Simulated assay, not measured.
Amino acid sequence: MDVEALRTFVAVAGSGQFQAAADELGISQQAVSKRIAALERQLGATLLVRTPRGSRPSTDGQVLLPHAKRVLAAVEQAEQAVRPGSRPLRVDVLNRRISPAQAVYRFYRSRPGTDLDAVTLSEENAAQAAQAVLEGSVDASFRALPADQVPAGISTERLLDAPLELLVGPGHPLAGAHRATPADLAGHRIWVPGIRPGTEWAAFYQALSETFGLSIDALGPHFGDEALMDALADSASLATLVGSGDRYLWPQAHDLRRIPLHDPTPVYPHVLLFRSGDRHPVLTALREHLRSTRPRTPHDVWVPDWVAR
């Protein structure tokens, strides 16, 4: 059934005049007549009775009228549900401790009351997350997606580079360093538990290892971030890598040290994926916020050459 024909019928029934309905709908009186005639043919019933004073619903028209109004109300609700800005923006931040989550949180703090949901698709790799964006499960996702894996219909913008830092306990040989180079890490065991094969972060750490000759592994069970902090505090040889904007907490007695890396500065590139042409106002505001607040990029940045821009 033609929704516009139903809308026209309701307008005529309400005003009692074809011309008044035409003015309300922004169409010609002839178009109103054609829509009503087509609807009557489809239903096999006369819906309006012409009188010297205009038109009024026939008996069949009176039966149809409340149903038509409910249909139009349902259509309006459906349109409103997907209209840009009518629902919260759903952003996949990957992990609530790391830079994307902190950046989205700062955006929310700068705009209290913004209609926003931060979610984690932590079991998905970058390609699967891009598909979730494409299908509408989420509106945007922060991922280090290879350029050749960006599907049609997805736009990318590299908005958040997270410089890496070495995290060590007080007994580690590099614990007293104020800065370190990637070359300084050669020969030290770097433990990054939880790396899963096939994920973008696995590809990132593999590229980092191969480029600088590092020993990065994920051997052993991962009992969570707190257990990792405990292991670092108790070890004179173990280290891990974290982003400079990542938020990790540990007991003061652990005395862990965050050591910035430079010459070059390895950064984890969080690329924002979103549907091409998405007009959600919160997405636009988030992108503008990230552009205006991101730290100045170090002059000696290193990223894998496969990362989408």
Results as ranks from 00 to 15, higher is better:
residue 46 T to P: 03
residue 253 A to N: 07
residue 143 R to F: 06
residue 50 R to W: 02
residue 272 L to N: 07
residue 249 L to F: 12
residue 97 R to F: 14
residue 121 L to Y: 11
residue 95 N to I: 06
residue 220 G to Q: 09
residue 211 T to V: 07
residue 181 T to A: 07
residue 243 G to T: 11
residue 182 P to E: 05
residue 27 I to R: 12
residue 182 P to S: 07
residue 296 R to A: 13
residue 133 V to P: 07
residue 74 A to G: 07
residue 216 I to T: 01
residue 50 R to S: 09
residue 67 H to G: 03
residue 45 A to Y: 04
residue 161 D to I: 02
residue 229 M to I: 09
residue 231 A to T: 06
residue 236 A to G: 13
residue 306 W to G: 03
residue 111 R to A: 11
residue 104 V to F: 03
residue 122 S to H: 14
residue 260 P to D: 07
residue 21 A to Q: 07
residue 11 A to T: 10
residue 299 H to F: 01
residue 172 H to T: 02
residue 309 R to H: 05
residue 146 P to Q: 11
residue 218 A to N: 08
residue 13 A to G: 13
residue 30 Q to V: 15
residue 192 V to R: 12
residue 131 Q to R: 15
residue 119 V to D: 03
residue 36 I to Q: 04
residue 59 T to G: 10
residue 13 A to H: 06
residue 162 A to R: 01
residue 100 P to R: 04
residue 232 L to Y: 08
residue 137 S to Q: 14
residue 204 F to K: 01
residue 188 H to S: 05
residue 102 Q to N: 11
residue 48 L to A: 10
residue 220 G to A: 09
residue 80 Q to K: 08
residue 210 E to D: 13
residue 242 V to F: 15
residue 246 D to R: 10
residue 178 H to Y: 01
residue 214 L to V: 07
residue 200 E to Q: 12
residue 205 Y to E: 05
residue 38 A to R: 14
residue 41 R to M: 10
residue 252 Q to K: 13
residue 262 H to Y: 10
residue 215 S to T: 14
residue 238 L to Q: 14
residue 158 R to A: 11
residue 9 F to I: 04
residue 307 V to Q: 00
residue 66 P to W: 08
residue 134 L to N: 06
residue 113 G to A: 05
residue 238 L to E: 14
residue 55 S to L: 13
residue 19 Q to D: 12
residue 44 G to A: 07
residue 2 D to M: 04
residue 238 L to D: 12
residue 214 L to N: 04
residue 129 A to K: 11
residue 246 D to N: 13
residue 191 W to K: 06
residue 300 D to S: 03
residue 209 S to V: 04
residue 56 R to D: 07
residue 10 V to T: 10
residue 179 R to N: 00
residue 161 D to K: 00
residue 53 R to P: 00
residue 116 L to D: 02
residue 87 R to K: 10
residue 203 A to F: 09
residue 67 H to D: 02
residue 176 G to A: 11
residue 245 G to C: 06
residue 174 L to P: 00
residue 240 T to P: 09
residue 57 P to R: 05
residue 297 T to R: 12
residue 141 S to Q: 10
residue 73 A to D: 13
residue 257 R to F: 13
residue 63 V to M: 06
residue 129 A to C: 12
residue 296 R to Q: 11
residue 54 G to Y: 06
residue 76 E to Y: 02
residue 307 V to N: 01
residue 102 Q to K: 09
residue 195 I to H: 02
residue 225 D to A: 15
residue 7 R to W: 06
residue 55 S to H: 15
residue 38 A to W: 08
residue 205 Y to L: 11
